[in-house]
């Protein structure tokens, strides 16, 4: 693998690591969801430091250019993350739906009760 590519990978990794740490400190990201990106950075670092690994993997998969192997890994990883996010979003929207309904019903019940109370106090 080209030395230029390895340097770029190293720079991006360090920059992203700092970005994630600052987001975590400001509590704009949850560690639970951030962890996967930190592992990904770790993976990139391993490939940047030991490019032979990528060459080995390429010959194993029958891919002539190691860069394409890198792309393949990236695409596979991003697809997994996107599917994971779709699952998370679906779950959140389901929870929001239920929460909204329960709040609205609780408000209706409390309005009914307060109406009843005010009517009773008028009767007295």
């Amino acid at each position: 693998m080209l030395i230029e590519l390895r340097i770029i990978m190293a720079i991006i990794t360090v920059a992203m690591l700092f970005f994630f740490i600052s987001m975590l400190r400001k509590q704009k990201m949850e560690l639970k969801y951030c962890l996967i990106w930190i592992f990904a950075l770790l993976g990139v670092t391993i490939f940047a430091v030991f490019p032979q690994l990528l060459d080995m993997l390429s010959s194993l998969l029958g891919i002539a250019t190691p860069v394409f192997t890198l792309f393949l890994i990236c695409i596979a990883f991003l697809t997994c993350v996107c599917i994971g996010l779709t699952i998370v979003v679906s779950r959140l929207s389901d929870r929001l739906n239920k929460l909204t309904q329960n709040i609205a019903i609780a408000k209706r019940e409390s309005d009914k009760n307060s109406n009843k109370l005010s009517r009773e106090s008028c009767d007295e």
């Binding site: 929001l96 739906n97 909204t100 309904q101 329960n102 709040i103 609205a104 019903i105 408000k107 209706r108």
Partner: peptide
Amino acid sequence: PHIDLPLNLGIGGAVQTGYRYALQ
């Protein structure tokens, strides 16, 4: 007699609120 949803849930979410209320 009405229930005000604090967020727009769409027709499905609205009707489901009604079923939930009816059950309760």
